[in-house]
C-alpha cells in the first residue's frame, strides 16, 4: 500500500548536473560563458601568441589593423603591438577582477555575517562603518587610496577590493538576518554547535548563492574601476592594461580611432560576459525555478 512513508523516492542527479542543466537553458548566459572562456584563454596564451614585452616597440607607429601580419591589430603611436596589449591586458583585467572581488567578498562576508548574526550593538557599529564607506563615492575613495598607497598593481587591486565591499556586506547581512531565525539554525544550536560554526558551517553555505551571483557583478565593476584608473594615467605603468591603452589612444582618437576602440571593445565584452554569467548563475541557483 502506498500509505507507508518509509519508501524512498528514486535518487536525484547530483547538484552539479542539475546546475548545468538549468544554466544551459539560458542562451545569453552560454554566450557569456564562451566570451569568458576566450578571455581566460587569451590571458593564458599571451606569452605564446606574443612573446616578449608587450610594451616594447613591435613595428612602425600607427600601423592600421590588418596591414602588417606581424602586428595584425595594428600598432599605437609608440609602435607597440595592439594585439599583444590586448592579450597581456586580459591578464591584468582578470587578476584585478578576481583578486579585488575576493578581497571585497571576504570583507563583505565577515562584516555582513557578524552584523546579521549577532544584531544589536554589533550590527549598529558595523553598519555605521559601512555607511561611512558608502557615503564617499567609490571612485573618489579609490583615487585617494591610490594617491596614498602608490600605483603598483598589487595596491591598486587591494584598493579596488577595499572600496567595493559595502554592497556585498549589506547583502550578506540581509541573508543572515533571515536565515538566523530558521529552525535548522536552532536545531544546530540545540546540538551544542558554537557560534563560529553556526555562522560559517550552517548559515553561510545557505547564504552563498546570491553572494556568488553578486560576485560576478563586483568582478565586472572591478575591471571597470581599474580601466578608469588606467585611463586617467594612474594605473601601473609597468603592465599593459586595457585602460592604459584607451587612455593613450585618446590622443589619436580622430585619425587612428582603433587604438582606443579595440581595447574598449575588449572591456565591453569582458564586462558583458561577467554580467551574463552572473545572470545565468542567478537563474540556475534560484530554487524557485524548478523543473
Amino acid at each position: 500500500m502506498s500509505l507507508t512513508d518509509t519508501t524512498l523516492a528514486p535518487a536525484e542527479p547530483s547538484r552539479a548536473i542539475v546546475f548545468w542543466r538549468r544554466y544551459r537553458r539560458n542562451r545569453a548566459a552560454l554566450f557569456g560563458l564562451v566570451i569568458f572562456t576566450v578571455v581566460v584563454l587569451m590571458a593564458l596564451t599571451a606569452g605564446i601568441v606574443a612573446p616578449g614585452d608587450p610594451l616594447s616597440r613591435a613595428g612602425a607607429p600607427l600601423t592600421k589593423p590588418f596591414v602588417d601580419m606581424a602586428t595584425p591589430l595594428g600598432t599605437d603611436q609608440l609602435g607597440r603591438d595592439i594585439l599583444a596589449g590586448i592579450f597581456y591586458g586580459a591578464r591584468i583585467s582578470l587578476l584585478v577582477g578576481v583578486v579585488a572581488t575576493l578581497v571585497a567578498i571576504v570583507i563583505g562576508v565577515v562584516i555582513g555575517a557578524l552584523s546579521g548574526y549577532f544584531g544589536g550593538w554589533v550590527d549598529d557599529v558595523l553598519m555605521r562603518i559601512t555607511e561611512a564607506f558608502q557615503t564617499i563615492p567609490n571612485f573618489v575613495l579609490l583615487l585617494t587610496l591610490v594617491a596614498i598607497l602608490g600605483s603598483k598593481i598589487e595596491w591598486i587591486t587591494v584598493a579596488i577590493g577595499v572600496v567595493s565591499w559595502t554592497a556585498p556586506a549589506r547583502m550578506v547581512r540581509a541573508e543572515f538576518m533571515s536565515l538566523r531565525n530558521r529552525e535548522f539554525v536552532d536545531a544546530a544550536r540545540n546540538l551544542g554547535v558554537s557560534n563560529t560554526a553556526l555562522i560559517f558551517k550552517e548559515i553561510l553555505p545557505n547564504a552563498l548563492p546570491p553572494i556568488i551571483v553578486y560576485a560576478s557583478v563586483v568582478m565586472a565593476l572591478s575591471i571597470l574601476l581599474e580601466s578608469a584608473l588606467a585611463f586617467l594615467g594612474l594605473g601601473d605603468p609597468n603592465y599593459a592594461s586595457w585602460g592604459n591603452m584607451i587612455g593613450q589612444g585618446r590622443a589619436v582618437l580622430r585619425e587612428d580611432w582603433y587604438c582606443a576602440a579595440i581595447p574598449g571593445v575588449a572591456i565591453v565584452l569582458t564586462v558583458l560576459s561577467f554580467s551574463l554569467v552572473g545572470e545565468g548563475m542567478n537563474d540556475a541557483l534560484n530554487p524557485r525555478q524548478k523543473q
Binding site: E183, F184, A187, G192, E202
Partner: peptide, 22 residues
C-alpha cells in the same frame, strides 16, 4: 550550556525548515 545540550534534545515542528538543506 553547550555541554549540557546533549542531555536535552528537540524535535521541531517543520521538518523542512529544521534540516539544513545543504
Amino acid at each position: 550550556l553547550r555541554k549540557m545540550r546533549k542531555h536535552i534534545q528537540m524535535v521541531f515542528q517543520d521538518p523542512m525548515a529544521s534540516l539544513n538543506p545543504r
